[in-house]
């Protein structure tokens, strides 16, 4: 089995700061992590590899420093890592990103045909959940999103049964390989990398591909030029026109503060008081 996990390096969201005047992201010194949702995908891929044999390749598109994320994935137990990095990918929206990744996957598949592509359900910086379906669509892979569990895999028949989170319940789906699976959070528990894997990762070579190496022929489909969406402005929302009424707390006991809040709540929402006391 050849399983490829697409991962993204993202800034640790807890530490993102916005410049108060310029409204730009202050990236300096913000640590990067593997998108947390992708770790569930990586673990599931490694679990299948351990059961059925084969290899797990991690694929990442990003700046050269994204090599750190791939090395970390190798340390957790992935077998091979490929970084596609090219200035001409800069500014890609989800359509252009899925084009670059799908092309790289095709190139990877020529060497060892791919059975399953995994991604996380979404990233924590973009939060779109669009790149996974985009890749599946371009490569005509059977698409299984929001997968909470893989019930069974029949390698000989090329069949897979998975549980997909839907609205109000879980769909049990039977599909065929090759497929693309986006993994839901909490689907598994990430292993701790073994000492051997850590040592191997430190020495391992991460394959670095330019657009051409990845097989991208049409550069008009990459980066800003290949992105149908355009960000027209980035801004911080304005405070509400009517400022908040601040409840005086100075010199009051907690009980008095509690009563004061309650009186103001009911003064503004008389219907609510009637409903609660009905």
């Amino acid at each position: 089995m050849h399983i490829v996990v697409c991962i993204k390096q993202v800034p640790d969201s807890a530490q993102i700061r916005v410049h108060p005047v310029t409204n730009t992201i202050m990236r300096q010194g913000v640590p990067t992590i593997i998108n947390p949702y992708d770790l569930f995908a990586l673990e599931e891929a490694m679990r299948l590899r351990d059961e059925f044999g084969g290899r797990v390749t991690v694929l990442c598109m990003g700046p050269p420093m994204a090599e750190d994320a791939l090395r970390r994935a190798l340390g957790l137990g992935a077998d091979q890592a490929v970084l596609i990095t090219d200035r001409r990918f800069a500014g890609s929206d989800t359509l252009a990103t899925s084009f670059a990744l799908a092309t790289a996957l095709e190139t990877l598949g020529k060497e060892h045909p791919i059975d399953i592509v995994f991604t996380g359900k979404q990233t924590i910086d973009g939060d779109t959940a669009q790149v996974g379906p985009g890749i599946a669509c371009r490569l005509e892979l059977n698409q299984l999103t929001y997968v909470a569990a893989i019930d069974s895999l029949d390698k000989a028949k090329g069949e897979i049964v998975a549980r997909r989170r839907a609205e109000g319940g879980v769909q049990v789906l039977k599909s065929k390989l090759p497929c693309l699976i986006t993994m839901l959070e909490g689907a598994n528990t990430l292993r701790r990398g073994s000492v051997q894997d850590m040592l191997r990762a430190a020495r391992a070579k991460v394959t670095v591909w330019s657009a051409e190496d990845a097989g991208v022929g049409d550069l008009l489909k990459c980066g800003l030029r290949g992105s149908p969406t355009v960000v027209k402005k980035v801004f911080a929302p304005q405070p509400r026109e009517e400022p908040a009424e601040m409840v005086a707390v100075e010199g009051k006991t907690p009980a008095q503060i509690g009563d004061a809040i309650l009186d103001l709540v009911f003064a503004r929402q008389p219907k609510l008081e009637a409903e609660l006391t009905a």
Partner: peptide, 9 residues
């Protein structure tokens, strides 16, 4: 940017 700003697309 992880919900730190708004953008219009």
């Amino acid at each position: 940017f992880g919900g730190t700003l708004l953008c219009t697309i």
